[in-house]
Amino acid sequence: MTALPSYRPRVHPLWWARRRAYLVFVLRELTSVFVAWSAAYLVLLARAALAGDAEYAEFRAFAGSPWVVALNVVALAATAFHSVTFLNLAPRAMVVRLDGWRVPGFLIAGGNHSAWLAVSALVAYLVLRS
């Protein structure tokens, strides 16, 4: 196979900062960093609780330190942004037909958001009931 000279257009290194739409796109993609952090945080929480009361107290001190709270506030905003954008994506990724009738996108997205609300309420109830 002969190697063809490839065409590489020049791109500004900060191309994603040059338009609002691009910036929102990149911010949306970067919510995944906080998805990973949140998953790791839950593992740390589970590890501490399973290890014993002393380890759990240590974890609570760590979780209460200002920088961890600040990080988690950002993580809350990022994961909520992820939820809204990801659940809105579903009707674009799939077309649901019922007996030939195309279910409109807002019903699919609305169903997803209702499920989000229901799951959140259930989790909050299970965790917080005494």
Binding site: V35, A39, L45, Y56, V68, V69, N72, T79, A80, S83
Partner: peptide
Amino acid sequence: AALLLPVLVLIFGVLAPLGVIEPPPAARV
């Protein structure tokens, strides 16, 4: 992640550490 993470981060990452809600004790977790 969309369905579960925001509520878990809200409870365990923000409200409990800030003392807005009573943090679930280790035995509860």
